[in-house]
Write a protein that binds this DNA or RNA. Structure first.
Length: 271
DNA sequence: AACTGAATCAACCGCTTCCAT
DNA sequence: AATGGAAGCGGTTGATTCAGT
């Protein structure tokens, strides 16, 4: 499976998009719809690679995009969903209408990681997990991927590395492709309006799955030890007051070591 | 006002996954 | 079953902006 040389072509423009380019792209997609990104630039008269066009459309030009001012409610939801899904930004974005995976990822890395660390909370709760049942994989981490990850340590990575070892566990489900089934631009709308867009039974199944996942995501999750909250001496009270974080200690939950296993199994079945 | 370091976020890179053949 | 093209995803980069001195 070789990679196609999408963005390595010489002569293609890179960097920030101009207003003219935005207009060309938006007009073309309005007339012809999304998709066929590879051939889109040429047809639209753009000197960009298809990937770049797709990214620009998805993260900036697409109708209904909300920009900036992520509300405390949204932050709370991001934190909850991240505790459930891990770094599955597209899945998380699918639960936040008008937000893009890129924006959520950036917000997490620049704001939420810091907030959680300041509150004495380990943001990356994916270590020491009981290995989820998984099918045999072709390859784990390629040499190139490992090399890329080794390059430099990001601020986010530093924050996470400096944090204390995790006390609790969170399951990290396998990533699934989202967009083809759940258009991100109006994912929540699509959940509410059953059958709109896709009338196939598969589409309805997806709606049901997403609704079920959403219910799981909204369950108050026993992520944090109570002493973590009690020992918090940070000064970011807005964060603690503004968010409905799952700070409640649930003895029943902690006393049942198999609960997360069961929830994870249910989640896998839903997927 | 000038400089510097930190913070932010749009865009890029490369890998994975899906799907048609 | 194997292959290759296309799309999607998550990690990372780097230009720009902001805040502090």
């Amino acid at each position: 499976m070789g990679r196609s040389p999408c963005c390595s072509k010489v002569g293609l423009k890179r960097g920030p998009w101009s207003i003219e380019e935005d207009t060309l792209l938006a007009n073309y997609i309005q007339e012809n719809g999304e998709g066929h990104w590879r051939s889109l630039p040429q047809k639209a008269g753009l000197l960009r690679c298809g990937k770049s066009c797709r990214l620009r459309w998805m993260n900036y030009l697409r109708p209904g995009i909300k920009r900036g001012n992520i509300s405390p409610d949204e932050e709370d939801l991001i934190i909850r969903l991240h505790s459930l899904l891990g770094n599955r930004w597209s899945l998380i974005a699918g639960r936040l209408p008008g937000r893009t995976d890129n924006e959520i990822k950036n917000h997490w890395n620049t704001h939420l990681l810091k907030k959680l660390n300041n509150a004495g909370i380990q943001p990356k709760l994916h270590k020491d997990l009981p290995k989820p049942p998984k099918k045999p994989k072709k390859s784990t981490t390629s040499a190139a991927g490992a090399k890329m990850k080794k390059k430099t340590k990001t601020a986010a990575a530093e924050v996470e590395e400096a944090a204390p070892p995790p006390k609790t566990t969170v399951y990290l489900p396998k990533a699934i492709r989202v967009s083809s089934s759940f258009p991100r631009s109006n994912s929540c709308d699509s959940l509410l309006v059953s059958g709109s867009g896709s009338s196939s039974s598969e589409g309805d199944n997806n709606v049901e799955k997403e609704n079920a996942i959403a219910e799981v995501a909204y369950v108050p999750w026993p992520l944090l030890e109570l002493d973590e909250v009690e020992n918090y001496h940070g000064d970011d009270q807005d964060f603690l007051n503004g968010c409905d974080l799952p700070f409640i200690h649930h003895p029943d939950v902690y006393d049942d070591p198999n609960l997360l296993d069961r929830v994870y199994d249910e989640y896998l079945q839903l997927l």
